[in-house]
Design a protein around this nucleic acid. Structure first.
Length: 481
RNA sequence: GGGGUAGUAGGGUAGCCUGGUCCAUCCUAGAGCGUUUGGGACGCUUUGACGGCGGUUCGAAUCCGCCCUACCCCA
């Protein structure tokens, strides 16, 4: 940086410089500390971890409606891991191996799970006997390890994924499993709706599906720099794994059949999207649902009325906590302005100020994190706070949705693709052939994400392929993280 | 995978080539005391570092080797 061009200290890099903004935000807002001395591993600060807890509370709430949570071991014996050929091929280059216990070499090396199919399915083979055991729907929230060789990035590309929610379901028929994949997408849509994160769903091309799947649906969003981030996937596994791991059930006619399976996952990339889409030049912005502190009360103290003001602020906090808000009062010995900046950096949705003027007028001054100021009467404050917060949440969701819509461009010719990718996603007509997809990628600098669908099927033909002119299907292209 | 640059206190930098008065410096960094408080307060006092391991040397932030980590460029 040129001398004299320094940023005023105390401010973030502008969000328009997304990469720098993101890196600095992570520690300034106390989400992740990137200084842990192992590549690709990062530390959750308490505030980041508190956000994680709220986000995963919502995810669990949704999952618990028709899944049960369980927990499988981190270590997977090589003998199990190496059973499914496609799966091995997809992961073998990024597996960490435990080969010693103390000084002794292990007879069978143990893999640190990169994903848990091969830990879970041997047990499913024991658990499942008959059609009465189906469907089986289980999930777990665990860490997973992948030896990433590309550039690692906190919350986005990790060697330890700390927060992998993976669901694994088993069904009697292919169609039932297909229906489960479709439902997984509706669960994820609901989850991201609650985070106010807009998403777009597509079916990944066959060469980009999960290793060992019949097909893969993926949930993407557009980051502020225009690149796409995959923030959820759902896979129809068919009988690939049930054949390998001998997951058989006896159907109503007494016949032994291979089970049909699905799996689907979400990781802390959800939190990367959450903070990236909503944040601004002052810090992160959290939807009330996931804010560890929803309301921060800042007493504005003047010397001679100090006790009175603090008492009023404290009773305000008590009252609002009774209304089930997550409330904190900031009575540190700092100037009010310093506290405003502090809590704005950390994303608190609503700030209530109470000072001599407010007390005398019987009001509280309210400022939402997006800068809307209002004066609320002190009586029935709980109701007013609820309305203020829900209005804020709606604005946040709508703003993010509009930016996403602006980032998606429908194009019909090759030359239109690069400018569309600059902004975000291009919707192009594509025939489905790999050769054409490779040419598209090569000539536009983007990747084919997949065909637009929420269900994996019933895709309509529309237009003709940009490369070969054959009948085409609307397809997403983007620059993927 | 290949190449390059760098790592000095909580953060930002100087010093390194030419080894020694090096107790370096700045900040919304930390600690203490006091005065303050409606958008980043001020004064005084004070704490703290040379990425890790090994080597050369009477003496290493500085020279040499290996390792780790970060960033950039190319595949």
């Amino acid at each position: 940086m040129e001398p004299g061009m320094e940023e005023e200290t105390g401010t973030l890099p502008p969000k328009s410089a997304f990469s720098e903004w993101y890196n600095e935000l992570l520690w300034r807002a106390e989400i992740m500390d990137v200084r842990y001395p192992v590549k690709g591993l990062y530390v959750w600060y308490p505030h980041g971890f508190a956000i994680r807890r709220e986000v995963y509370r919502i995810l669990r709430e949704i999952m618990d409606r028709e899944h049960r949570e369980a927990l499988f071991p981190l270590l997977i014996p090589a003998s199990e891991f190496m059973k499914e050929a496609e799966h091995i091929k997809g992961f073998e280059d990024e597996v960490y191996w435990v080969t010693r216990g103390g000084k002794a070499e292990l007879d069978i090396p143990l893999a640190l799970r990169p994903t848990s199919e091969t830990a879970i399915y041997p047990m499913y083979a024991l658990w499942i006997r008959s059609h009465a055991d189906l469907p089986l729907r289980i999930y777990q929230v665990v860490n997973s390890f992948r030896y990433e060789t590309k550039h690692t990035r906190p919350l986005i590309r990790l060697r330890e994924i700390t927060s992998f929610k993976e669901a694994h379901t088993v069904h009697a028929t292919w169609e039932e499993a297909e229906e489960q994949v479709r439902k997984a997408i509706t669960f994820y849509r609901e989850f991201y709706e609650r985070l106010c994160v807009p998403v777009i769903v597509s079916r990944r091309p066959d060469w980009d599906k999960f290793p060992g799947a019949d097909y893969t649906l993926a949930v993407d969003t557009i980051m502020p720099d225009g690149k796409t981030l995959q923030i959820g996937t759902a896979h129809h596994l068919g009988t690939h794994f049930s054949r390998t791991f001998q997951i058989l059930f006896e159907d109503k006619n007494g016949e032994q059949k291979h089970a049909q399976q699905t799996c689907y996952g979400i990781s802390e990339r959800s939190i990367a999207a959450l903070i990236s889409l909503h944040g601004d030049d002052r810090g992160i912005i959290l939807p009330p649902d996931v804010a560890p502190i929803q309301v921060i009360i800042v007493p504005v103290i003047v010397g001679k009325r100090k006790d009175e003001i603090l008492a009023q602020a404290a009773s305000l906090a008590t009252e609002l906590r009774g209304g089930a808000y997550r409330v904190q009062m900031d009575n540190r010995d700092l100037r009010p302005g310093a506290k405003y900046y502090y809590w704005e950096m950390r994303g608190v949705p609503l700030r209530l100020e109470i000072g001599p003027r407010d007390i005398d007028a019987g009001v509280v001054t309210a400022i939402t994190r997006d800068g809307e100021r209002s004066v609320l009467p002190r009586i029935n404050l709980g109701e007013k706070v609820r309305d203020t917060l829900s209005g804020f949440e709606v604005r946040l969701r709508e703003k993010a949705r509009h930016r996403m819509e602006d980032g998606i461009t429908k194009v019909t010719s090759l030359s239109e693709i690069p400018p569309a990718l600059e902004k975000g996603i291009a919707i192009i007509p594509w025939c489905g052939e790999r050769a054409c997809a490779d040419k598209l990628a090569q000539q536009s600098g983007g990747d084919v994400l997949g065909i637009i669908t929420d269900t994996g099927k019933s895709v309509r033909k529309e237009g003709s392929c940009i490369i070969c002119g054959e009948p085409a299907i609307p397809t997403l292209m983007g620059r993927a993280y």
